[in-house]
Structure formats: structure tokens, C-alpha cells
Design a protein around this nucleic acid. Structure first.
Length: 460
RNA sequence: GGCCCCAUCGUCUAACGGUCAGGACAAAUGCUUUUCAAGCAUUAAAUCGGGGUUCGAUUCCCCGUGGGGUCACCA
């Protein structure tokens, strides 16, 4: 992990004479927190932290039908897992009195009105905003000036009843009440912004700064959603991505500091982040790059953590019960360099790629023991026998990768590397693909190694 | 369809109006103590089209085209 920049002495940090920055992330608990939503949260977080401001988490649960407590829990757990601390927490469902006050005020001032409407069964009244139909122009930090003719909005609904404000209304009231200075949200909210500005003006709220983020797209360039490949934080955790990799990858989706740096700690993101450098166009989510990023972080993980992860994933497959710590130490680097995310450990185990460790190979096809490029069964047999003799001269303490290699290599060089090393590797692993023979021998230990070499020789 | 937004390699992206249009992922090829993995090296790969402005446009303007978003008593 390298960081090219470290706390420059004079940078673009804003001075504290400005108004304190307050940002918010306002998800509705109608599903598991997606990576895309999380990126919005991350950008809000980074911006607030960079300016020593506040970052607020606000659960927008005004839609009683679709909200679930389970999803709210998921959002909070995800924030914890990813170490994104928020300074304040709110639930809109607990703030209806506040909305009601503002609603009543607008009705009293005739800026909104109660509209009696026909509807098959049920409710017959809604509260509508008295829309003058002016042209609203606002400045977006990412996109510049955007203007809308609000005539076509008509007198839009701002509440289902005095107790049930609609999203557009509660958002504006909350952003005002909470002193939000910067609204950083997805591009899909651009068309909601004129409505919000109209409401702001009606309740006398100042206009915050807007920054509309480009959308994260699926590979077909449509909006990423559960149906076309969106991954939730919960799911990425289960798949074995690290929090740091997720943050790193997401930060670079639609943003980049203009350098060639690819790996960023959260601290360096806070320091280097800027809304101005955010891309305007949507960004396709690329799982392969996420995998690569994750691999970079996995390799940098302390060995202890890797061993724990490996033991945990392996035991889920039913293997690895009662493995010795010594074996685990030997196996860990072999597994680590072959995986991109922890889920791959399970895959390896299920595909039998680690079977050589747990059980003796059966050599069902003895020909497989012979190096295909110009060796014979007799030769392979001869080499296997020679190898067991050579290795039996090593003591248990000497049975290390380096020692084994140094004692076998001269013989292999003389007889032809492939001719010697392929049978050895296959005898020990019983697999077409496996780690190198010296490592195998070392991990298996002297006794098993000699047994397998002899057994394989007998099959030829 | 109306309104709004956007447009550099397959993908993520860099480039005060002057660069051989750079980097990363993925791909291909080769090297390394057999295979796999890892590592290293190399290669291929882009400015949507047309008009302007300018000595000079990836960059500024206009028009197309393409893509996306949004049009709820859902957020």
C-alpha cells in the first residue's frame, strides 16, 4: 500500500471562517444498503470530514407500507462494519410533529391548501403546494447551472394528510432544521430539486449547495439495481470483501484526484477528495476491478487475520476440522496468493483444490504421473524412488522449502526438471494443478511426503 | 413522448487550447526453478458525427446522434 501524498503543508482545505459544513445521507429502509447508495454516503462523509463538519444519518421512513426495521438495522450495521461514523442520527417517523407545524404554517399562509379529491375508497383529502409556476435556476457543484420550468409540476402533493408528509416535504424541512449546507445525492434527484427549492422558499429556508452524483450503472449502462447485478454491503461482506477495499473502489467510481494513485486509505481520501473533480457521466460498476482492489488489501492484511479468515471459511465447508496451527501457518500463503476475496477460499475447497492436504491421492490414472514432454513410466518410477531416498536423508527439522529445494534441484537439473518435478508434484498432490512440489512436501511433512512418493512409484 | 443530465481505450479514468492522447482493471504474448497462482516485461485498445471559433481543438460554441435519469397520495 503506498500513499503518494501525505498531509501537504498548504493545500486546498477551506479555512474555518466559512460556515460549518453539514452533510447527510438519507436512505429509505426499503432494502439492503447497496454499494451505490453507500458510495453516496461515503462522499457525504468524506466531504464533511474534510471540512471538519458534521455528517448526519437520517432514515427516511415515512412510507409505512414499504419500510422494514430489518433494513434500518442493515444500514446501521453496514455503517459500523465499514467504520463510517455519523455524528447524528434521525428517523423521520419520529418527527411528524415538526412536519405538521410547517405544513400548518403553509396552509395558514395559503401557500398550500387542503384539496378534496375523489379516490376509489379511502382517503379523499391531500395537501397540495400552491405552485406559481416560475422558472427555477440552481447551481450544481458538479454540473453547473441547471434550470427548470416548474409550470408543468402543477400544484404537487406535499402531504397525504397533516400527519403524513410526502418525501419532498419532509426532506426540505429536515434539511433546514438540521442545518444541512451541502446536499450530495444521486443524479436521479435532479428532477426533484426544483420542487424542493420551491418548498424551501415557501418555508423560508436558505438554499443549500447541491451536488448531484453520477449514477452507478450496470454493464448494460442502465441504472444499477437489484435486478441487474447490484450488490449490497451485506452481500459483499459475505463474499469476503474487506471494508477498506470497498471504500477504495467506490471512491474511485466517478471520482479521482487527477493523479495515478490507485490505493487510498480513508485518511488520504478525506484529504484528497473534492466535489469538483467528480465525473459527470455515469460509471459502470466493474466487479473485476473491485476484485483486484480487494486482492491488494488482502495481501496487505496481517497473517493472523488471514489465518482466521481461512479457518473460518474452511470450517464452513466441513473440512479443516482440527487442523494444527503449524499447518495453517504453512497453508495460509498458498491460499492467500490464489484468492481475490475470502469467498474464493470456499470455492477452492469445494472444487477440491486443497484435497491434497486432507487426503492421500488415489492415482487413478498412473500415466498422469509421467511428464508429458518426453518421459516414460519407467523413468518416472525411477525418479520417484530416487526422490524418496534423497528426502529421507533430511531430518524433520530440515524439512523446509529451502532445504528440500536445495537438495532436489541438483538431481532435477541433471535428469531434466520436468521429468523429475512433475512426477514429484503429481505424486504429492494428485492434481494437474497445485502449488510447487517443494512447498507441497514441506506442508505435508516428511512422513506423508515419503509415503506418497513410494505409493506413487508402486503404481507405475 | 415532455423535461433534465451526460458523451476519451471493453471498463474506471488523466490531459492551463499545443502531449507520441497518460495510468489502472480486464485481454494477449513472453520471461521466471515442471503445472496452477503470484511476480516481471511487452503488445493491442479511445477522443460519437457534422459544422463553427482559433495559427492550433479531447478541451470553447451550435446542430445532430447515442446513452441515461425523471415524469406517484415511493423515497
Amino acid at each position: 500500500m503506498t500513499e503518494t501524498q501525505r498531509f501537504p503543508t498548504s493545500n486546498g482545505m477551506k479555512t474555518t471562517t466559512e460556515q460549518k459544513v453539514v452533510t447527510r445521507f438519507a436512505p429509505s429502509p426499503t432494502g439492503f444498503l447497496s454499494l451505490g447508495n453507500y458510495r453516496t454516503a461515503l462522499f457525504n462523509f468524506l466531504y464533511a470530514k474534510q471540512h471538519n463538519g458534521k455528517f448526519i444519518l437520517r432514515i427516511e421512513d415515512t412510507d409505512k407500507e414499504r419500510n422494514k426495521k430489518e433494513y434500518e438495522r442493515d444500514i446501521i450495521e453496514s455503517f459500523e462494519w465499514l467504520s463510517l461514523p455519523f455524528n447524528e442520527f434521525y428517523r423521520q417517523s419520529e418527527r411528524t410533529d415538526i412536519y405538521k407545524t410547517y405544513l400548518q404554517k403553509l396552509v395558514d399562509e395559503d401557500k398550500a391548501y387542503i384539496s378534496k379529491e375523489e379516490k376509489e375508497g379511502g382517503r379523499s383529502e391531500v395537501i397540495r403546494f400552491r405552485n406559481q409556476g416560475s422558472t427555477v435556476v440552481f447551481n450544481d457543484i458538479i454540473r453547473g447551472e441547471i434550470s427548470f420550468d416548474t409550470k408543468e409540476l402543477g400544484d404537487f402533493v406535499i402531504a397525504k394528510s397533516m400527519e403524513e408528509p410526502v418525501f419532498h416535504f419532509s426532506v426540505v424541512v429536515d434539511d433546514f432544521e438540521m442545518g444541512i449546507t451541502h446536499i450530495i445525492r444521486g443524479e436521479d434527484h435532479i428532477s426533484n430539486t426544483p420542487r424542493h427549492i420551491l418548498i424551501q422558499e415557501a418555508i423560508g429556508a436558505p438554499r443549500p449547495q447541491y451536488a448531484h452524483l453520477p449514477l452507478i450503472l450496470a454493464s448494460d449502462r442502465s441504472k444499477l439495481s437489484k435486478r441487474n447485478g447490484a450488490i449490497s454491503i451485506k452481500e459483499s461482506r459475505e463474499r469476503g470483501y474487506t471494508p477498506e477495499a470497498i471504500i477504495n473502489y467506490l471512491a474511485l467510481l466517478g471520482w479521482n484526484p487527477g493523479t495515478e494513485q490507485e490505493i487510498f486509505s480513508i485518511e488520504s481520501l478525506i484529504q484528497q477528495f473534492s466535489l469538483e473533480k467528480i465525473q459527470k457521466g455515469g460509471a459502470v460498476f466493474n466487479e473485476e476491478k473491485l476484485n483486484w482492489t480487494n486482492k491488494e488489501y488482502i495481501r496487505a492484511l496481517p497473517k493472523e487475520k488471514l489465518m482466521n479468515a481461512i479457518e473460518e471459511r474452511m470450517s464452513k465447508t466441513g473440512k479443516f476440522t482440527g487442523i494444527s496451527r503449524e499447518s495453517l501457518i504453512l497453508l495460509t500463503p498458498l491460499i492467500t496468493e490464489r484468492i481475490e476475496k475470502f469467498e474464493d477460499i470456499t470455492d477452492m475447497a469445494e472444487k477440491g483444490e486443497l484435497d491434497w492436504f486432507f487426503e492421500e491421492p488415489q492415482y487413478i490414472f498412473p500415466e498422469s504421473l509421467v511428464w508429458k514432454k518426453g518421459s516414460s513410466r519407467d523413468e518416472a518410477k525411477k525418479h520417484l524412488q530416487a526422490l524418496s531416498e534423497i528426502l529421507s536423508t533430511l531430518s524433520l527439522e530440515e524439512f523446509t522449502v529451502e532445504k528440500i529445494e536445495s537438495i532436489i534441484l541438483p538431481y532435477a537439473d541433471k535428469e531434466g526438471k520436468g521429468n523429475v518435478l512433475w512426477p514429484m508434484r503429481f505424486a504429492l498432490s494428485g492434481k494437474e494443478k497445485s502449488p510447487d512440489p517443494f512447498t507441497l512436501a514441506c506442508v505435508l511433512g516428511k512422513e506423508k511426503t515419503l509415503t506418497r512418493l513410494k505409493k506413487a512409484a508402486n503404481r507405475l
